[in-house]
Design a binder for these strands. Sequence first.
DNA 1: GTCTATACGTAGATAGAC
DNA 2: GTCTATCTACGTATAGAC
Lengths: 183, 183
Amino acid sequence: MENRKSEIISFAKSLIQQKGYAAFSYDDISKHFGITKASIHYHFEKKEDLGLAVLNRLHLRLTEFSASIATSRESLEKKLDRFYRLQSEKFAANEICPVSALQTDFELLPERMRVKMQEISRLELTVMQDMITDEASGREADSRAMALVVLAAIKGSLQYGRVINEDMLPEVMSGICQSIIRR
Amino acid sequence: MENRKSEIISFAKSLIQQKGYAAFSYDDISKHFGITKASIHYHFEKKEDLGLAVLNRLHLRLTEFSASIATSRESLEKKLDRFYRLQSEKFAANEICPVSALQTDFELLPERMRVKMQEISRLELTVMQDMITDEASGREADSRAMALVVLAAIKGSLQYGRVINEDMLPEVMSGICQSIIRR
DNA sequence: GTCTATACGTAGATAGAC
DNA sequence: GTCTATCTACGTATAGAC
């Protein structure tokens, strides 16, 4: 059942968004699907394998997005909006960006996952940098720092928003487009 | 030994910065100080009590900083620099902001810790908002969103920096001061 | 593919001696 | 304050039947 395997990846990603990599368990997953932990191990022998499957999916979506950006003539707002929904179409109130959650758990990830996380984090930065320099008519010297600011703003909105129970993303998004990019 | 108790709080904070709340253990702490887990339980009966002690210290430092800002005539750069070092004088290469780490683990924190986290997160936002509006001569309509952007940029620099193994904070800091505040 | 059964480690926590 | 000893719960993981 290739579908079951894919469903497990999706659910694991969602669990990581809620609780992080260390805290989510095969027991969480088995209960959700009504099967035993041993069955999850059939699909993903070790937790590390499941973690890598989640990372590979995140990486794939990011790569696809990167390609779609290169040719597109969308406005920056549209691009940022699509980027925001990239790894999670709709964020539940108790979910943050999966990449952020995995960055926080970086020190306890197995080596293979760390390598992949580094790849994903670097790609996020360059993709965002491309989006910004495409738009900005002016200087691009500090565009790498600016890319991090925009990335961090999006992810930070989710993290602070979950804690203070308030969706700050709309105002942050418009603030970004006005004050940072159109300088 | 009131000093031992305080040392445990410091070390717990550092562990949280490295591994998050869920993953740090009494065993980590006992090994570090060369005493048994039971001894840690003498100082902090439950993990939640130790977690709250860490949060109370973070909150105290933030409150003190908030007061010191109100009267100060420092430049924004100086203020931001002091804010950055507030919760950790010097960040080890494997440490991120403790507040960020605890925000990521928010869903698995006990209720008392969640309440305190909300308080701290709100205070961080208002403190940063004060710093920005003090400086900015212009409009202050979106200063709350701007405060989140600056906060997220600082914390994001630590998170991305740990993963890609590169200190991005200096360029991000100067980028913030130039492009965002002095608009 | 999913099950039962089980092994083994580690976690948080407590009782009671020193 | 710190210890030894112990408990219970839960984690990842495996063997082997269906």
